[in-house]
Amino acid sequence: MADTDGKNGGAPESKTPAGNGRRSTLAALLEDSKAIRQRAIEEIKALKQPQKTVLWKSMFRVKHDETARSRALGVLTNVFLHLHPAKINRDAVRYSYTWGMGGISFYLYIVLVFTGVLLMFYYHPTKVVAFRDILYLEHDVPFGKLLRNMHRWAAHLMVITVELHMFRVFLTGSYKPPRQFNWVVGVILLVLTLLLSFTGYLLPDDQLGFWAVTVGTNMARATPLLGHDGPFGPQLGMTPFNDVRFGLLGGSIVDANALLRAYIWHCVALPIIASTFMIVHFWRVRKDGGISGPAPVMLESEIKEPRKL
């Protein structure tokens, strides 16, 4: 206070000590607010360049200038983009080569996780209310019908895109060395995609799902050695109450336990397993040298002799 007074030299009206004090305080307050206002204006002006702020810098860590280095760093220092290299083969971005099916499959998986989690808020995996929950979703929950439709169609679409992805990888010979093992991981992911879709089929607890799962799991009773209807099953002591089908359904018929098991496989176990394999799949794409091509064509005369064991 005293400092401010001294700097301003006091107001001319200030005669009495009491009045002087009151007036100078008021003036000082006005001065202060002016200074604060000035500072606020300056700071707001500075916001026109948000990338200069501490907040921005702390989030993104690197400058985003119009330079090649910044572009590369923008990809490399971002947790969501760091699976990408900074630069790729100029032809690898062609849709005609990749068909984009792998990336679309992953995107659909994200859509499915998102819509699936939202659906979980409205769904109880019990025989009494499961079907009613679906009716509730369809008729009362805001956008519930859209949510369920999107989840189902994205699941179907994902099966198609995963199969087309496999088809493309085969046609381009991308499973050849050094990418053999990633093809194996991909086959596991295909199986997991089908299992995820299949376990979800039962959850509405309607006739469609019930009979589809009955047909599906009836095959398990015919498992050789492990099913009570399968070759050598009865000889090994398999009955409807201890075979592999019993393990899948948690009972000898598709009932409450089967619903709960399907729910847990569908919402917890399989997504975790699938996510793990996906992480490995994407990691291996990078570690095996990025996507396979389009590579320069090789001629028959250039085949090297195979390595002998």
């Binding site: 046609l171 381009t172 991308s174 499973y175 050849k176 091509g293 590579a295 090789m298 028959e300």
Partner: peptide
């Protein structure tokens, strides 16, 4: 598949 050709192109 021991065929070394066709690795990375249609």
């Amino acid at each position: 598949d021991e065929n070394p050709l066709g690795n990375g192109y249609y």
